[in-house]
Simulated assay, not measured.
Amino acid sequence: MTFQDLKLIEPIKKALQEEGYTTPTPIQSKAIPVILETKDLLGCAQTGTGKTAAFAIPMLQLLHENPVGKFERSRIRALILTPTRELAIQIGESFAAYGRYTRVRHTVIFGGVGQKPQTDALAKGVDVLIATPGRLLDLINQGFIKLNQLEFFVLDEADRMLDMGFVHDVKKVIKLLPGKRQSLFFSATMPPAIVTLAGTILRNPVKVEVTPVSSTADTIRQSVFFVDKSNKNSLLLHILQDESIATALVFTRTKHGADKVVKVLRKAGVTSEAIHGNKSQTARQNALKNFKNQTTRVLVATDIAARGIDVDDLTHVINYEIPNIPETYVHRIGRTGRAGAKGIALSFCDKEEKPYLKDIHKLIAKNIPVVNDHPFAAVRQPA
């Protein structure tokens, strides 16, 4: 199947062609026809499966084909609610890319920055609003946003909303939406609380499921290095001596840990930046931009800050610390090996992290191959 088979309008086909998109991913080929038929959708798909395009493309088409009269141009027709600023920005970039030949206008709002540029954009009128929950509710309370004439509602990364404590905010937003609307709900995992939440939002949804969270892409070559905690910095520098590693995304468990790793890398002359919740929005955006254009070779991130980081051609993900939640491992390494490209995921495991590694093996139903041939191998390797 190609995008040509999906009954898309010419302005969108032209934009996709310019973006170099020819073959839809499984979530796109399943979700786009359902959304174009104006049905509610429950999408179980993790980051990296192409789900943003799966909802952005058909929404742009429906909005473009059903324009509103000039006196209605001020109303918001679609709302996409997403947990992090980074993800909101990237969804905005997707709407700009796929909708460049349509009449659809969008804007992105999030906290951590001044609200005036955002309220100015809203005053000019937008069709699609992409928002994080806190800033959205803030601007609704101030009277800048009304959702009573909404036609489309998308809840993205619902499980992460739950993890980050946004579920009460989400419920507040849902109460403000009109009953008659098309709703799309996406989550990487489906714990009971998420199933219940989906039930309050969707009407007779079509369920679309791709790559369950327990699986890792076959295109990603995974390996684990057993190393004492005190030698992790040395091992990281040793690996980065390989000049063929153009960029690497390194994961730590804490913000403090991310900053410490950046300090070590910079001291060794490796261009690197950290991205986490304590950084200002501008610093985070700049770090991501520098990483995407390869000015920065290594981006060191915490899990929450990294959710939604979508970097084309990223070849290496390095788990400086093994995550204590096994699903997080799958999310982390899914940043590489996207859309059929090859990727490499390296994990550093000290003896305290051995139980976490066991949990990961159980989840992905295979053992990650061990690299013994390195200068910092732990003296007593975990069994």
Rank of each mutant, 00 (worst) to 15 (best):
P117A: 08
P117V: 03
T119D: 10
T119L: 08
T119C: 09
T119A: 05
A121D: 13
G125S: 06
G125R: 03
G125D: 10
V126T: 12
D127A: 07
D127P: 07
D127C: 10
D127G: 08
V128S: 03
I130K: 06
I130M: 11
A131W: 10
T132E: 08
P133Y: 08
P133K: 03
G134L: 07
G134N: 08
R135G: 03
R135W: 12
L136K: 03
L136S: 06
D138I: 01
D138G: 02
D138M: 08
L139W: 10
L139A: 02
L139M: 13
N141L: 04
Q142A: 01
I145W: 11
I145L: 10
N148E: 15
Q149C: 10
L150Q: 03
E151L: 07
F152T: 00
F152W: 15
V154Q: 03
L155P: 00
L155Y: 07
L155M: 09
D156A: 01
E157R: 07
A158F: 02
A158W: 04
D159Y: 11
R160K: 15
M161I: 06
M161N: 04
L162W: 14
L162K: 12
D163T: 04
D163G: 07
D163I: 08
M164A: 05
M164D: 07
F166K: 00
V167D: 06
H168R: 11
H168K: 14
D169K: 01
V170I: 15
V170T: 09
K171Q: 15
K172I: 09
K172L: 12
I174C: 05
K175G: 06
L176E: 08
G179I: 12
G179S: 15
K180D: 14
K180R: 15
K180S: 14
R181W: 13
R181G: 08
R181Y: 14
Q182M: 11
Q182L: 09
S183K: 04
S183P: 06
L184M: 14
L184P: 02
L184Q: 04
L184Y: 10
L184V: 09
S187L: 12
S187K: 09
A188Q: 02
T189A: 05
M190H: 11
P192W: 14
A193I: 15
I194M: 05
V195P: 01
T196Q: 15
T196A: 15
G199Q: 13
T200G: 06
T200I: 07
I201D: 05
I201Q: 07
N204F: 14
P205V: 05
V206C: 04
K207I: 05
E209C: 03
E209M: 14
V210I: 14
T211E: 14
V213C: 03
V213Y: 00
A217Y: 02
A217R: 11
D218G: 02
T219H: 04
T219E: 09
I220A: 03
R221W: 01
R221D: 13
Q222L: 04
S223P: 00
F225S: 00
